[in-house]
Each structure stands twice: as C-alpha cells, then as structure tokens.
Design a protein around this nucleic acid. Structure first.
Lengths: 208, 208
DNA sequence: CAAAATTCTGAGAGTAACTTCCATTTAGAA
DNA sequence: TTCTAAATGGAAGTTACTCTCAGAATTTTG
C-alpha cells in the first residue's frame, strides 16, 4: 500500500458540500453521545438530539436511520481491513490480524480513542444497541473470513476458514466482556491475550 | 441426574391456570409464526397476531414483551444445560458439549424440530430478530463458560475458559451461517464439523 | 360451600421511533 | 447568472410498546 493511499489516509479533497455533511454528521453524533451520557440512552429522544444539534428530525434520520446508529457508526472497519491486507503474506494469519488491529488503534488520536471507548461501553451496556452491535460483528466476521482466505490462499467458502474467523471474533468478544466487568483493564491487552489463547491452541483444554 | 427429574422432563403437574397459560402462549406463538411465514415479519402487526390468536393486544404483550420474542422464545436452553452437566467428567469438554447438543436434539419431536428450524431460519433472516438472537447467544456464552469451568474444575473467571466458550459459540455460529446459505445441508452435521475443526486445533491454519 | 385474596384479561390513552411525501433552500455545474 | 441536483425542513401517519385500571377467572381460605 502506498504510504498515502487516498482511500485510507487522506480525507480526499471534499467540496464544500461534503465537508458540511461530515461536519453535520459529527456534530449530531457528538451531541447524541453527550446526551446519552448525561440523561441515559432511552431517556433521550431523537427530537432532543435533533434540537441539540440544531437540525430537523428529518435531517437527523437522514444521517442516522436508527437511534442505535448514533452509538455504532464509525469508519474504522475499512482502516482495519487495509491494515490487514498490508501485512506480508509470510506472517501467520492470527499474527497478521493482531498486528492490523494494533496498527489501526495506534493510528487513532487520543480524543477519538476516548470517544471509541465510550461508544464501546454504551454498545455493551444498552441491550438494543448491543444487539445491533453484535449483528454488525457478525457481518464483519464474513469480511474477516474473506481476508483470512486471501491471506492463506484458500477458498473463502472453506468451512475451516469461516470457523477460524468465527472463533477469533468469539474469542475477542469474550475478552471485551471481560473488560466491561473490569474497566481499569486495557481492552487491547485482553484482546491480545485472548488471541494468544487461540494461537497456542485450546489444546490443553480440549483434551481435559 | 435421576431419570425423571421433574425440573427437566416432567411438565410438573400444573394447575388449570398454568395449563391455560401454556396453551395460550403456544397458540399465540403458533399463529404468529404462521402469519410471519404467510405475510412476512414486518408486514404482520402485533394487532393482527393478537386477533388471530383471539386475545387482546394487552395479553399478547404480557406473553411476548417484544415482537422478536415471538420468534425467539423457547425452552431448550435448560435442557441443553442439563444434558451437558449429565456428561461424565472424564470426557473432554468439547466432546461433552457435542454430546449434550446431540442428545438434546434427539429428544425433540419431529414437529417441534421442524418449528425450531423455521424459527432458526427466521432468526437469521430478519435483521432485528437476528440482532436479538445474537444478544441471547452472547448471554448463553456466559452460561456455557460457567459450565465448561465446572466440567474442567477451573475458575469461571478464567480468561482462557471464556475464550474457549467464545470460540466454540463463534465457530457454531459460522457453521449456522454456512447452513443458511445451503438449506439442504444438515445443520447438526455442519455444527459438529465446525467443532471438530476447533478440537483438532486451528493449528494448521494459525501457523500459515 | 362461600368469601377473600390473587392473578389474568381487556380496554383505552399515551409515547416515541421510524416512514413517507412535498415544498423550500442551497451548493455545484454550465 | 442560470440551471440542475442534492440537502433540508415540515407535517401527517404507522406501529411497537408502556401504563393504568376495572372487571373476570382461579386459587385459597374460613
């Protein structure tokens, strides 16, 4: 990947129109998260959010079709995917995956990271949001399986590949749950540990 | 476990009241599934379901708090749990898990199984239902982790255990997705194959 | 068997998330 | 500037879901 791939790093020269849109979207989400934190998710209505962001409800719904999207929407997935594809083929899959996650996290500014942590916490805390987050995770699993297949030079339809992807996601999810219960822990640390469990093989456990 | 443990096998002698409740609940769910199949999920309103089952909307909501519950609700989980706990300690965890699933499925009547398959298909097909199904799966993972811990004589707080449970669930989920794309396949067969991938260890893959 | 206590049901009003449609404004191209 | 396409705002409607309360059915008690 060229060091300044426009699809990844550069915001790609936007016209005034797109710049305003991005600005509006960011403003809406920021206000929404603030209100969710202050008054609680279900106690905050879409109308209140629209009012806070100074847009009409219609506009709010055009940017965020559902209330959950206000918590879930971000654009880290393509960054992750790019980072993974940038890994050299000779490095083992799970190591490559780990590296991709690490690199992506490293590329996020402290403020954005803080916001991401808040969103993650809300995602696990509010049942409706959690449900939709998991649904998104499931589709992500498909994407990851495809990337794994490509990295390994195998068919993306291969059950073994999909099981591997599912196991990886399941493991990380468990790690996240671990983190929710223990907020002072580092989510990255735990995720890495979880993946190492998988790399070392659950062999020790599966026999006993 | 005694062969006729009342909490598992026997419906436990119910009074008239509870018998009627069970009957009403079953009737509601049956009608709901029928309408979902005939007219589609979102095209069917709660009012229509209530009317079809000949109860008031209030009553419908008392039995099924959300529309998704009409698809998701069943009582197989405790059966599974009991079957797992009934496995002798010396059999390896994942084998025990596999056996528990197998035995539970074997104990379900053909009609009930058919209904379960329909519900599963709806669960994966309708986005809102799928989301809630995954959320339920997540809590189930916690229960499974506890059972694994008990079987292995380890702490349920152990990260390694939870990762194992997460990986198992993730693998099975991937298998189910596989099945959705290929309806003539046997879901049980694929799930077993997926678990075997995990038992044999993803070692072959994690190195390459 | 009758009365009292508990639980289930039905009815109605209300909230809020989302949808749809149309008139208006605003940015970008000619 | 003018024309076109896209973003916005306003309003009315649908539906899932909540709350409350009065009446009916069931279980328990005297």
């Amino acid at each position: 990947m060229p060091p300044n791939d426009p699809t990844v790093l550069a915001p790609a020269p936007m016209g005034l129109r797109e710049r305003k849109k991005a600005q509006t979207r960011a403003a809406i989400q920021r206000h929404a998260l603030r209100l969710f934190q202050r008054d609680g998710y279900s106690a905050t209505t879409m109308e209140q959010i629209a009012a806070a962001a100074d847009v009409s409800p219609s506009t709010l719904y055009r940017y965020f079709p559902t209330k959950e999207d206000l918590v879930l929407q971000d654009d880290y997935d393509p960054l992750m995917a790019a980072a993974f594809r940038a890994q050299p083929p000779e490095v083992p899959v799970l190591e490559a995956f780990l590296a991709a996650v690490h690199q992506t996290l490293a590329g996020i500014s402290p403020e954005d990271r803080e916001e991401a942590v808040l969103r993650a916490r809300l995602s696990f805390t509010i049942p409706e949001v959690r449900a939709r987050a998991l649904d998104h995770t499931l589709s992500t699993t498909d994407v990851i399986a495809d990337m794994f297949a490509e990295h390994l030079g195998r068919s993306p339809r291969d059950l073994e590949i999909r099981v591997l992807a599912g196991a990886v996601i399941g493991a990380i999810l468990s790690a996240q749950l671990f983190w929710i219960d223990d907020p002072k822990a580092d989510p990255w640390e735990i995720s890495e540990q979880a993946l190492r469990c998988l790399i070392d093989g659950p062999a020790g456990l599966t026999k006993g």
